[in-house]
Computed example of a mutant assay.
Amino acid sequence: MPQNRPGWAASNACPDKLLADGAVPPNHVPMFNELPVPLSPGDQLDVRVHNDAALSGSFSVNMDGTLTIPFLKDIPVLGLTAEQAEAKVAKALTSAGLYRASTVRVSVKLKHWATIQVSVAGAVFQPGRSLVGDRKPDGSVDQDLGDSTPGRYLSYAIKGAGGVRPDADLGKVRLTRSGTTRVLDLTGIFTGSAMEDPPIMQGDQVFVPSSGCIHSDLVRPSQITPPGIRVFLSNLTQPAASNAQSAISTQATNVPYGTRLLHGAISANCVGGIRLTNASRSVVLATTNPITRQTEVIERSVEELVRSKDRDLINPYLLPGDGIACYDSAVTNGRDVMRSLLETVVPIPVVRSVTGW
């Protein structure tokens, strides 16, 4: 039997908001100076050595994190900024005896960031490898030099993993690089206060812990939540014999993140019509508890949803992959039962001649 209310929304609701509007997260320390944009394998650099075309050109960082330039030994640049790589190239030129330290002039500029893979785990909808900083489908680059690629930041990696679940603890997000872990506060994405969104590099590991309770503040579109979700709708109520007859299209099954059950029922055309026969229709929601990952099934009457539209326990938020099914009212069910009995006991032609059906 369906439950009276979803466990994840009923017993796991967080008592407090993330932060008061406009508040600054506690212990906020800007980290942009500590974590400059680092180079990763595949990043493309424009290297210019003054008056030397043989040593100048476009070079990509190798998979082992080195930069290969003609006549020089491979230069390790993994995790460095373009400015630090410039100093490394200048030193390699002098070490090879090609230039003196006083005369070498080198320019290293970023041409294009490569797509990188970052591991994202914890309270996200799709944990695993997240592809960050992907190019356009045709592989084109927006600029000749200095492509900033905003996708190479922490928030993009989290969104690439499906976004955070409602139980995420955004004040304790962990970013691990080369064995060193930093704890970051991303609550500012939802509160508008100062926050940290550091750049990331190939091999970084991100962990979003669970708070053990549900933050309704997180159930809305944002930088680190889904812009929209796909739900599965089924409406075979009278007089429809299929979802097509209920006008359930692909557009109806794609709703903004933060949509509640009542709006999902409206998308499935479960709401409306003759009040006497349709008001007591019921809606069944099959959802997955984001904390326990167990499937839960609840049932609501349409009338109950309309009366208590602002109560989380009655009208819960929809999550990715939820399923909604509509059932006819008791009046419609009784009418169908009577019709079936009549068709079984009395021949159909006789019924039609007497009743005019």
Rank of each mutant, 00 (worst) to 15 (best):
P221M: 14
A90R: 11
D167W: 09
V351Q: 11
D64W: 03
G212N: 07
R281E: 11
R311P: 00
L305W: 05
A161F: 11
G42S: 06
S148L: 13
M1C: 00
V77G: 05
G22P: 12
L285V: 01
M1V: 03
R177D: 08
G128K: 00
V346N: 06
R293N: 13
V120Y: 00
T344D: 10
S119V: 12
A241F: 04
G151V: 05
A90S: 12
A123N: 10
A114E: 12
W357I: 15
P38K: 12
L305R: 00
A252R: 06
L261A: 01
A241T: 06
L218P: 09
A194L: 12
Y317D: 01
W113I: 09
A244R: 03
S178N: 11
T287E: 05
I200K: 02
N12W: 13
D310T: 15
G128Q: 00
L305Y: 02
P6F: 02
R5F: 02
Q238L: 09
E34D: 12
E299H: 07
R105E: 15
T259N: 01
P41S: 14
L78F: 13
L170N: 07
G133N: 08
V120Q: 00
S140M: 00
R174W: 08
V345H: 07
V106T: 15
P30Q: 05
V106A: 05
K88N: 08
S58Y: 13
I158R: 05
A53M: 01
V350K: 05
L98M: 10
A168L: 12
A279T: 12
S340V: 04
T149P: 00
P30S: 09
S40V: 07
S140V: 01
T81Y: 06
G228Y: 01
D16K: 10
D197G: 08
L45E: 05
I214D: 03
V284S: 03
H28F: 15
P15L: 14
S178C: 06
N333D: 13
